[in-house]
Structures are given as C-alpha cells and as structure tokens.
Nucleic acid binder design. Structure first.
Length: 271
DNA sequence: ATGCGGACCTGTTAGC
DNA sequence: TGCTAACAGGTCCGCA
C-alpha cells in the first residue's frame, strides 16, 4: 500500500487524536513484523504523552519526552481508530489505547512493516541515518539530483526509488513522475540533462503534492487514519494502465519490469 | 562503490 | 468450481 502520500495521509489522520494525549495502554498481539516489535515498547509508551506525530521518509514517528516509537507500514500496513467494542481483526498486530478513549490499531497482513522503540533521536537510528533528503524539502533540487546521478548507469526509475538518493518515491509515483517529466524509466541516471532533472524534480513534487491532496492512492486496501480511501487512483496516468491509450499522445502505454518492479510508460512521450 | 537478486509475508486475482 | 501460479503499494542484505 503505502508510499509517501499514503503515510502522510495516515499521519494527518492520526496526529490530531494522539498529540498531547497520554497513552493509557499498549497491547501487542503479534510481535512478528519485519523486525520483532521492540521488547518493552509497551512499557515505554504507556503513561507517556505523545508530543508529536511526525513523518520521515515513510516512517511515522510518535515522539514522547523519553523516546520515540518508529513505525513503518511496509507494503500492506495501516493504522486506524476503532471503537472499544470492535473485536481485533485478523492481522491487527498492535493496539494503542489513549487516555482520551481513542484506540488506534496497527494492521499489517504481510508483516513487512515495523514498530520499534528508540531512546535516542530517531534521525540517528540505523534505519533512518542513511536516508536521503525529503522529496518535497528544500535540499531536493534538480542540481542535487544531477550531482548524485553523475556517472551512474542505473536506470533513472531505480535511482529515484533509492532511499539513499531521495526518500518516499515508491513504485506508483516513480512511474507517474517520469511520465510527467517525459523521461524514459530505463534511461541511465547519469545521462539526463540539468534541464530535464529540474523537470523531474518538479514532477515528483507535483505528483506527491497532488496525491496528498487526494488522500493518497487506494489500489485495493489503503485507508487513511479516518478510514477513508485515497482518490488519487483516478488521477494516475500510466500506472496500471498497460495497453490503454496514453492520455497525452494517444499511443499505447507499455508495461515492463525493471528491478523486479512493474513499470509503465509511453514510449512516444518518454525518451 | 555499484548493481543485482533474493529475502521477508499474506491475500487477491488470473489462468488452466 | 477448484487448484496453482503469479503478482502486489517496501526495502534490507549479501554477494559479485
């Protein structure tokens, strides 16, 4: 499910009911996520006020005065508020109960997500320490991307999906951004002009920004913290549109596989 | 240093 | 209708 817009949608959905509220209790029903849920996380979180709910890359950070819970939704994770009488559903691995009465459940069928505790500044956590800049932040410019691409023969699509280069660009939005920028997904990263890199950075920003405003992309099972699906799916121009006409030139959208990921593009518009 | 393939999981869908 | 295989929004790790 979640790429950056979906994680941001989740953050915005859950933050208002968590921030400034004390945790009444935490239940871990299944610790087996991508990494086991941190031992002692329940005790560390319980009784603490969640000062802020932040996002770094696709990680959600629940900050308290004594440490931070780091969550990742992986491929199929979601966080939703439930009513007290709602029985835990299949794959509801963790439940966080607030003193306000709100109950947040973390559900993740494929268990590629994680929920970890760190006493230190989360930016220093091994999972976050090596991450590149935020795609919608000031550091991510065409000039930056061009500098990081110099001499690289890797396909541009894989390059922008590399979290060491820039975070938060997943498969859907990599496809969409390259279409908007008119760049072929297989083009070598080091063989793209400065001008086109500017276009690409602008396209990534536009696509992510638009998707956040639409509440993310629901392909099948994404729902934000408020339980609503994302409507950006209707705005997708190439993703999952193999053999359909290109919205720009009327040609046929192609499908291929690149780095084991589904890739969609228009061979006429993208060079 | 870079680049590739495999690994971790379950659920849904396409195809026979 | 039922079984099986392929595929899915992420990303870490080990090896060449």
């Amino acid at each position: 499910m979640p790429e950056l817009p979906e994680v941001e949608t989740t953050r915005r959905g859950i933050a208002p009911r968590l921030e400034g509220v004390r945790v009444a209790g935490v239940t871990v029903r299944d610790r087996r996520l991508r990494w086991p849920v941190s031992v002692g996380l329940e005790e560390r979180l319980t009784g603490r006020v969640i000062d802020s709910v932040e996002r770094r890359a696709k990680y959600l950070l629940l900050r308290t005065s004594d440490g931070t819970a780091i969550a990742h939704l992986g491929m199929s994770g979601s966080m939703r508020f439930v009513t007290p009488e709602a029985q835990p559903r299949k794959h509801d691995h963790v439940e966080i109960r607030m003193e306000s009465g709100d109950i947040l459940r973390f559900n993740d069928p494929r268990r590629f997500g994680c929920l970890l505790w760190t006493d230190a500044e989360p930016a220093e956590h091994p999972l976050l320490a090596q991450l590149g800049p935020e795609p919608m932040g000031p550091e991510f410019t065409g000039e930056y991307l061009r500098a990081r691409s110099r001499g690289r023969r890797v396909a541009i699509k894989q390059h922008i999906m590399n979290a060491a280069i820039v975070v938060g660009v997943g498969n859907i939005y990599a496809n969409e951004s390259l279409f908007r920028a008119g760049i072929h997904p297989k083009r070598a990263a080091g063989r793209i002009s400065a001008q086109r890199m500017d276009r690409l950075v602008a396209a990534i920003n536009a696509v992510l920004d638009e998707s956040i405003r639409f509440g993310g992309t629901t392909l099948r099972d994404f729902y934000g913290g408020e339980g609503k699906p994302g409507y950006f799916r209707n705005e997708l121009r190439v993703y999952d549109r193999a053999d359909e006409p290109c919205v720009r030139c009327g040609g046929t959208v192609r499908h291929t596989v690149l780095g084991q990921r589904s890739t969609f593009y228009c061979a006429n518009c993208q060079t």
